[in-house]
Simulated scan of single mutants.
Amino acid sequence: MIVTTSEAQERARSARKSNDGPRRRELLRAASTCFAELGYDRTTVEVITTEAEVSRATFYAYFSSKEEVFHAVAADVCEEFLASQHVEGPASEDLREVLRTTTKAFVEAVYANGRVLELIRHRARLDPEVGRSWTTVQTRLTRRYTRFIERINDTCDVTPCAPPARIAQTLADAQLAGAARLVDATAREQRRYTADLMAISERLIGFA
């Protein structure tokens, strides 16, 4: 079998994808910074390699294009949002504390990734792959939230103000859209919003 240069490069690139080493992580960090500061259109491979202090050859050893590296950045952000809803250990038995912990973690993830999140939401309307990923994340987040509220309703002395699915969707929207508006706010304003959102969540779910 004859393997062309481009095929060989693609195979090598695919192998590096499965090995999430420090160089690839550095390229992703640089790309995320560039996308956040410059937006999608103004970010180029040259801009990313300058930020990462690597050659274009190094970039293309890991990613085939700006589009591909954006997909990887978006996947990382989406995974961070999903991970923010996961709590292990003894704290997971205190459902009120889990609610506070996961709300805080999710909102802080929005603060940290707000500009990239805005790009993801915009690109989701233009790029089918990003659109599918973002829809999947939103669906999983809302379903997890709904199941968690149902668990609280079944095991705690609470009186929810609406069906769990409606509360879950309302709070998920508030966490995403509300926190995104405060990306450039002061740390004090962000902490205030986080505290307010935790209090609102408890009231909607029915904690006394």
Rank of each mutant, 00 (worst) to 15 (best):
G131W: 00
V130Y: 01
I205Y: 02
T186W: 00
T101Y: 06
L141R: 04
Y111G: 03
I149V: 15
P160A: 02
R191D: 14
K17Q: 15
R11L: 15
E51Q: 15
L141F: 00
E53W: 00
Q190Y: 04
D157A: 14
S65M: 06
I2M: 15
A8N: 10
E53D: 13
R24M: 12
F81Q: 05
R100K: 12
N19V: 14
K66P: 01
V137R: 05
E88C: 05
D196S: 11
G206C: 10
E150T: 07
D20W: 08
L119K: 03
A105C: 12
E202N: 04
E79K: 14
E150G: 05
V45N: 03
E150M: 07
E53K: 13
T4R: 08
A199K: 11
E150V: 06
L126Y: 08
Y111F: 14
E80L: 13
S65A: 11
V137F: 03
K104T: 07
Y60D: 01
L27S: 02
F70R: 03
E150A: 11
W134T: 10
A30M: 04
E37P: 08
H86Y: 10
E46R: 12
V183K: 06
V130T: 14
E53Q: 14
T58K: 05
R13W: 05
L95G: 05
D154R: 15
P164Q: 06
Y40M: 12
V107N: 07
R56M: 00
A168S: 07
I2R: 14
F106Q: 06
T103F: 02
I120F: 02
V107L: 15
E93F: 13
E80D: 11
R191L: 10
P22C: 06
T49Q: 03
V73E: 01
T186Y: 00
R96N: 12
T155C: 07
A61L: 09
V107K: 02
F148L: 10
A36L: 09
L28V: 14
R13Q: 10
E46M: 09
V98W: 04
S55Y: 01
N113T: 10
I152T: 02
T43F: 00
A172E: 11
N153V: 11
A112F: 05
S18Q: 13
A12Y: 06
F81W: 07
R151I: 09
Y145G: 06
E51I: 08
Q85G: 14
A180P: 02
G89I: 12
S92A: 15
A105F: 08
